[in-house]
Simulated assay, not measured.
Amino acid sequence: MFAIVTIAGQQFKVEQDQEIFVHKINAEAGDSVSFDEVHLITDGDDTSVGAPLLDSASVGATVVEHIKGDKVIVFKKKRRKGYKVKNGHRQHFTKIKIDSISA
C-alpha cells in the first residue's frame, strides 16, 4: 500500500513505516502530524485517485528529528572585473516516519 501526498509544498510517494526527509515542519521531535492533501491511494488492485484530492483520506506520521542538509556553495564571478562572491547555504529538513495511511 502506498499513497501520493503533498507535504510542505512537495509531493511524495510514501509507504507505511517509511522514513523520509521533508522541508522543515513546525513540530517538535516525537510529535504526531497528519497530512490531508492525499492525491492517490493504492492497495494492490484497488486504486483511488482524487480530482485533485481524496476526501476523508489522510496520512499520519511522527516527527523523528530536525537536521540540516549538506552545505551548498554558491560562487558568483564576473571575469576580468574583479568581482567574486562566495556564499554557503544549508537547508533545514525534518525527518518523519509514516505511521498510517487511511482512506
Score class of each variant (00 low, 15 high):
85 V>W: 03
13 K>N: 01
95 K>W: 01
61 A>K: 05
99 D>Y: 09
99 D>H: 01
93 F>E: 10
75 F>R: 08
24 K>T: 14
61 A>G: 08
57 A>P: 02
94 T>N: 10
16 Q>G: 10
34 S>D: 09
92 H>Y: 09
53 L>F: 12
21 F>D: 14
14 V>Y: 00
26 N>R: 09
59 V>Y: 04
40 L>Y: 04
15 E>H: 09
88 G>A: 02
33 V>D: 04
55 D>S: 14
87 N>H: 14
67 I>Y: 09
16 Q>P: 05
51 A>T: 15
25 I>R: 04
55 D>P: 05
102 S>D: 13
43 D>P: 02
39 H>D: 01
42 T>V: 15
85 V>N: 11
81 K>E: 07
25 I>F: 06
42 T>N: 15
39 H>N: 03
66 H>Y: 03
27 A>T: 06
24 K>V: 14
20 I>A: 06
94 T>W: 04
11 Q>D: 11
20 I>E: 01
91 Q>P: 12
8 A>C: 12
51 A>Y: 05
54 L>S: 03
27 A>I: 05
19 E>N: 11
77 K>S: 12
41 I>N: 04
94 T>E: 12
89 H>I: 07
97 K>V: 11
78 K>T: 11
54 L>R: 02
33 V>I: 13
17 D>G: 03
6 T>M: 03
103 A>M: 14
85 V>F: 01
35 F>A: 01
58 S>M: 04
52 P>F: 06
55 D>I: 00
52 P>D: 11
90 R>C: 04
17 D>R: 07
96 I>L: 06
17 D>Y: 05
52 P>L: 06
72 V>R: 14
27 A>D: 07
50 G>L: 00
65 E>Q: 14
99 D>P: 06
3 A>S: 14
